[in-house]
């Protein structure tokens, strides 16, 4: 594509960034008017944005009130998520690809998979607590189930979408079945596999927070939950912002990976 054609969307996206920034500031301003200026709600229900922002920074050094600093919570949450997610990817992606490529294997695994598929990740929380207690393991297993489904579904569709004409090319060149799998089907599926990784990570992160609300002694979800009990809405909101921020960061990192691995396929 020529340089000129690229100019349009880029200029536009700059404009959009300005609009987005304006909207965030407007939101904060109204929030501030509502709480600090008009005092329309009691501070122990909705604290002012200034209070939340200062709490956010203080929490990076302060362990009070619930017993750990923000970084410790983030680290704990990330550790659990990434453990479950990594196992989910390691099992889910190959499983999805094999289901998409080997028909007999698909028939064999599908009944079980179709049974598990509609169960939302967080529905596994109670049974995992029964099996593994409230340590890292039970939550990691919840994340594992969440990530697994998204990875299998996307890798499967990706593999199934391999173009016939590409398989013809492989066959006329005398490629073996395994060569066709590794050199044609998997590269064909790569965009959807990566989409699966991204969807799975976002889903894992939300499932984790839910899991931590119920069964935890550390982590962002735990922090929010504790502060609800002891009435610290400023920490709750600071925690929510952190959850959103870390989630967005994780998605961004995977987008970078996607760009790297799919170079040449899109006009990036």
């Amino acid at each position: 594509m020529s340089k000129n054609e690229n100019k349009g969307p880029k200029k536009k996206s700059k404009k959009y960034i300005l609009i987005s920034i304006a909207s965030v500031f407007l939101f904060l301003f109204i929030w501030w008017l509502y709480t600090d200026v008009f005092k329309a709600v009691p501070a122990n229900a909705l604290p002012s944005p200034i209070k939340v922002i200062s709490t956010f920074f203080i929490k990076f050094v302060e362990t009070k009130p619930e017993g750990a600093t923000m970084l410790q919570h983030i680290f704990s949450s990330l550790q659990t998520t990434l453990t479950g997610y990594a196992i989910g990817v390691a099992v889910g992606v190959p499983l999805g690809i094999c289901m998409g490529w080997f028909d007999k294997f698909d028939m064999f695994v599908r009944p079980i998979f179709d049974l598990l598929r509609p169960i939302p990740g967080i529905a596994w929380i109670p049974v995992m607590i029964v099996f593994f207690g409230i340590g890292l393991m039970s939550k990691a297993m919840v994340i594992f189930m969440t990530a697994l489904i998204a990875c299998v579904v996307n890798s499967y569709s990706g593999t199934k979408q391999t173009l016939n004409v590409h398989l013809w090319v492989g066959r006329t060149f005398g490629a073996s079945n395994l060569e066709m799998l590794f050199r044609i089907a998997i590269p064909s599926a790569m965009p959807l596999i990566l989409t699966g990784l991204r969807v799975a990570l976002a889903a894992s992160w939300s499932a984790l927070v839910a899991a931590e609300l119920l069964a935890s002694n550390r982590g962002l979800g735990f922090m929010i939950q504790q502060c609800r009990v002891i009435g610290r809405p400023d920490v709750i909101i600071a925690g929510m912002i952190t959850i959103g921020g870390v989630g967005a960061l994780l998605t961004y990192l995977l987008k970078l990976l996607e760009k790297l691995l799919l170079k040449g396929r899109k006009n990036i």
Partner: peptide, 15 residues
């Protein structure tokens, strides 16, 4: 391999 084929549609590997 003694028969090469050039296809009708987009048959190049995009990757």
């Amino acid at each position: 391999p003694e028969r090469g084929v050039v296809y009708q549609s987009i048959s190049l590997f995009p990757w």
